[in-house]
Design a protein around this nucleic acid. Structure first.
Lengths: 215, 215
DNA sequence: GGTTGATCTGAACACGTGTTCAGATAGCAT
DNA sequence: ATGCTATCTGAACACGTGTTCAGATCAACC
């Protein structure tokens, strides 16, 4: 026996990627063999090399495609006016997008170290792009005095870590709905960075006093 | 050649664990071979089996010992009165403790899936104990009306994810000191859950109105 | 309906895996 | 100095690894 009935690269190709994603997410890149992936597809190991030059590329393509999807999706998202609303939109987008792709998210920061140096750098740059999107929101809010952020870079990483955490416990049929989780997390993120009202009032008061003293 | 000069189990034993920790953290459990660990120690692979029954136990011992250390350390910590201060103490403890053991922390949630089912359950229970310590703080604050938390379990996980995130970028000789990071993170954690003052006032007002209506 | 090219098998390659063990040597007690 | 035991080597075992490739078979086009 050789070629299988109904075989077509348009079908097998995506199935190879899907099997790799599933198995990498479940057991880790290093722990999964090409023969396991092939078995998941229903094919012999040699056939995989029609769809990828090697195992490393299989991982890299998954990670790169995912990051590109994230960046594109956030670009396409509508951005409301004002840093507070902007941050909420980001948080909600992040939660929603990531919960819809739990496996991609998982391998995206679990398997980074299994990338060869060049591939790693590529991914690192894409990730920084995404972080910059959030940091620019924080910076704007800081400038406008509506956010009370000590260090925008650090806060960016802290918020993303918190939002990412959701993927490690969320179950679609669990106790909480996606909408509820979205609301809770975006609320927490907002509160973590928002300028407290008493600080805002104090800032205004000091500004008025300074103006009065200048007269 | 057989036994090496200066060889002693009190010396080699810890060196085996240290080498395993270092290599597992750097490349992942599945990607590290017993021969690599042996080479790091300066010994042949067979000698490792004087110090561990197998590779799996090497990983499990590292993870279990670390979790036990965390639990013991938090037990020994002084707990200030009041949920707000209690939460701050927890946040600061967590940051400090985890930044002092970056490799242990890393493998502790990177390599969990490489544990055999029984070992996994043991670790899961220890981890839940730690999460419960934080959740009980949140619950108390909720009862006293000083925290505005939608769901204590979910918030617990979100906070721990945020605090854990610090280990992925912190460098001891970096831009920010440990004390500063501790302060920023504990501040963020506090703000993320604290009851806003206007809400607190409104709650009081409503309580007074209800009391007045009852007369 | 025959031909061509895409698709897959099955075997092979060279090497790496965790683990075991007989034998060799060092440290230590007598 | 001798004997005992803790410690390590080096080779072996059975199997798994990523990858290659000649040959077989199917899908599709003329």
């Amino acid at each position: 026996m050789a070629r299988k009935i109904g075989s077509h690269s348009d079908i097998t190709g995506p199935r190879v990627r899907a099997a790799a994603l599933k198995l990498f997410a479940a057991h880790g890149f290093a722990a999964v063999s090409m023969r396991q992936i092939a078995a998941e597809v229903g094919v012999q190991a040699g056939a995989l090399y029609l769809y990828t030059p090697d195992k490393q590329s299989l991982l890299f393509d998954l990670l790169r495609d995912h990051m590109q999807e994230v960046l594109d999706a956030w670009s396409a998202e509508e951005k409301p006016e004002g840093p507070v609303q902007h941050l909420e939109a980001f948080s909600r987008f992040h939660i929603r997008f990531h919960l819809e792709r739990p496996e991609q998210v998982f391998i995206s920061y679990m398997e980074l170290r299994n990338l060869e140096p060049d591939n790693f750098k590529t991914l690192e740059n894409m990730r920084r792009q995404y972080e910059d999107a959030l940091e620019s929101i924080l910076k704007q809010g800081q400038d406008e005095g509506v956010f009370d952020v000590d260090d925008t870079k650090l806060t960016t990483l802290a918020l993303i870590a918190m939002l990412n955490g959701v993927t490690s416990w969320y179950k679609p049929d669990g106790r909480l709905s996606l909408a509820r989780v979205e609301a809770i997390y975006s609320d927490m993120a907002g509160k973590a960075v928002r300028m407290p009202r008493w600080k805002e009032r104090q800032r205004k008061l000091e500004a008025e006093q300074a103006a009065a003293a200048a007269e």
